[in-house]
Design a binder for these strands. Structure first.
Length: 371
DNA sequence: TCTGGGGTCCTTATCCTC
DNA sequence: TCTGGAGGATAAGGACCC
């Protein structure tokens, strides 16, 4: 008997919450992103379906979105509010199973294998419960594994339940572009297209393992070989530990002034240390990231002899790292990252929450702890 | 009109130790 | 003592995800 996995994906989540809070926005194009000013640097986090009709989508620069639809309502991202709704939705999900893996504020996997119910009926139930109790709509994918459940929830939106069965996998995936697969982005899709003439999942299935490994490396090649066939044994992971904690900021106007950058780093260090403490970690590695005006992005890192948790040491390390960058061009972004995280008095965390490793189980691979 | 922020993991190169 | 390789740690960049 196979597993029963659901993928619950809230529809246009940020924008939907805004429309819920402000009924006057319903039916209007709403764009959530940045600080809500479409004339400043920033990108679209979420566009309402009304805004999408104008060609606006996530990750689009706010200025571009404004050009496409000047009369759209532009709003700042309000993570506190979305977190609130996210917790309410999650609480509903937990009424159905303790095996809930949140993927982000607006997505989660559920393992309902242990329930006798028909999974599609269960998905309909969950969708209705979310709508009745929050006013928000969700799309749910039903499948024998996480990979297919995620693809399924994306096939029909919004407010829909879509099932992919093992016996229909090949047929349902065959003509879809390779980018529907998790881990295939624009670069990989282009390489597959140029080197192998592969555009669809079905075409990808016809490529031998060795050819994929030659093109993309052993690991990624093997990964694609399995996922294009809908194969994925990864468990629903209910707990994980962070691997890194970071903060970064983009200037409204590029700068080459060292004093400005040092002040930014100081502020970022303060924020990142706050997060580190909140999570209860200390860190060994400090990384400074600089993105220049031409978008070239560089990092410089230093691993300290012992984990640290105080702002002064991290700041001192970060400022020293800054000296290793060529300040020959204006800087648009500065970031600070802490990694090699350790809980004081414990071994480094081995928790896992990623998109590559757990999707396909293979021999000898370390697997995350399941709930 | 460019191109956010917070993450994860992979690959490759290099250095060091055994 | 010299040399070579294995393998871990570190560093940097890149791809991807939401």
């Amino acid at each position: 008997m196979g597993r029963k996995i659901l993928h619950v994906d809230m529809d246009a989540f940020f924008a939907a919450v805004e429309q819920l809070r402000r009924p006057d926005l319903r039916g209007k194009p709403v764009v959530v992103g940045g600080d809500g000013n479409p004339h400043k640097r920033g990108v679209v986090s979420t566009a309402s379906y009304e805004a999408r009709a104008f060609g606006i989508h996530s990750a689009m620069p706010l200025r571009t979105a404004y050009a496409k639809c000047p009369h759209a309502v532009f709003l700042a991202v309000d993570f506190a509010a979305y977190g609130d709704y996210s917790r309410r939705v999650r609480a509903i999900l937990h009424e159905y199973t303790p095996l809930v893996e949140p993927l982000s504020l607006d997505e989660a996997f559920l393992d309902v294998s242990h329930r006798p119910d028909d999974p599609v009926a269960l998905a309909q139930d969950i969708r209705a419960a979310i709508n009745a109790r929050t006013g928000l709509t969700a799309s749910v994918g039903v499948a024998p594994n996480k990979l297919l459940a995620k693809i399924a929830s994306n096939l029909r939106k919004p407010d829909a339940v879509t099932e992919i069965r093992l016996e229909t996998v090949a047929e349902m995936l065959r003509d879809l572009p390779t980018t529907v697969l998790w881990g295939v982005g624009p670069k990989t899709a282009a390489r597959l297209g140029e080197a192998l003439g592969v555009r669809t999942v079905g075409e990808l299935c016809s490529i031998p393992l060795a050819a994929l490994q030659t093109l993309l490396g052993d690991h990624h090649g093997e990964y694609l070989y399995h996922i294009c066939r809908g194969e994925d044994d990864s468990p629903v992971v209910t707990e994980w530990e962070p691997k890194s904690i970071s903060r970064e900021t983009t200037y409204q106007w590029d700068t080459r002034r060292r004093d400005v950058i040092v002040r930014t780093i100081s502020s970022l260090v303060g924020d990142v240390i706050d997060d580190l403490r909140e999570e209860g970690y200390v860190a060994r590695t400090v990384t400074v990231k600089i993105r220049y005006r031409d978008f070239a992005t560089h990092t410089r890192a230093q691993t300290l002899p012992a984990p640290v948790g105080d702002a002064a040491t991290v700041l001192q390390t970060a400022v020293a790292l800054l000296e290793r960058f060529a300040m020959d061009r204006p800087v648009r972004l500065v970031g600070v990252r802490l990694s090699n995280l350790v809980k004081p008095g414990r071994e480094p965390g081995t928790g896992n929450r990623n998109f590559f490793t757990p999707l396909v189980r293979s021999e000898g691979r370390r697997l995350p702890v399941t709930g």
